[in-house]
Amino acid sequence: MKIILNIWRQRDAKSAGKMVRYEVPNASEHMSFLEMLDVLNEELTRKGEDPVTFEHDCREGICGCCGFMIDGVPHGPQRGTTVCQLHMRHYKDGDELWLEPFRAKAFPVLKDLMVDRSAFDRVIAAGGFISVNTGSAPDGNALPVVKKCSDMAMDAAACIGCGACVASCPNASASLFVSAKISHLGLLPQGQAERDRRAMRMVMKMTEEGFGYCTNTGECEAVCPKGIKIENIARMHRDYLKSAFTYREESQAGGAG
């Protein structure tokens, strides 16, 4: 089948970009969306043109590398699916599609459809962890975890950090991503010691990185390939508000000399 693509081409972070029209005359319905782009790129290479840059790695929906907008929706029309798992059988001959990179101040475009999502790493570094050095852990069964909490933590931990939530949000908010990590660790007993500090620091960092705010539209939840729920965002708000009232900076008195 024939697919017409309008793809955002941008040479690097500093250049201006524009939409360029391409045709893929011989796409197969069994191809994945990225394989269809591979075919286009092979063709462009043969013609001596610059192939389209897009991020991808595992191609099985777990690494979180891939992701761009297809007709204004991150990862395309199939719910709960990353673009590497989207197959061409969802399209028909002659379809015309618009491909654009995720857009947010915190996600600058590097080239074509590829953006820099390192802001996510910096938000995690601000507090998205449990401070436990290697070797200092108690026995795995020393602390029972309520199964329901463990399951809910797992639901939140399923986030692959692809950035679709930011891309779809009318305010370019990272609330779903950040709250998923705050929920994952905050729901587990192991994560309680740092719960206040974590919420406080991650929310501050998210603001500092230039992400927008949440207006509870639910757009992120609808496009999340892993089905992360906005219930987590409420939990983040709760933890943040609580921490705003109760959080104390560490004592400056120091330990035994």
């Binding site: 857009r103 305010n171 370019a172 927008g212 757009e219 939840e221 496009v223």
Partner: peptide, 28 residues
């Protein structure tokens, strides 16, 4: 917040679809 919204996405999408946002939420 309105200013922040514009700051957070300086370059708008060429094409953007809303799939969950209600009319009310969009027009707040």
């Amino acid at each position: 917040l309105w200013r922040l919204k514009n700051d957070a996405r300086p370059q708008p999408y060429v094409k953007k679809a809303s799939i969950a946002t209600t009319y009310a939420a969009r027009t707040m």
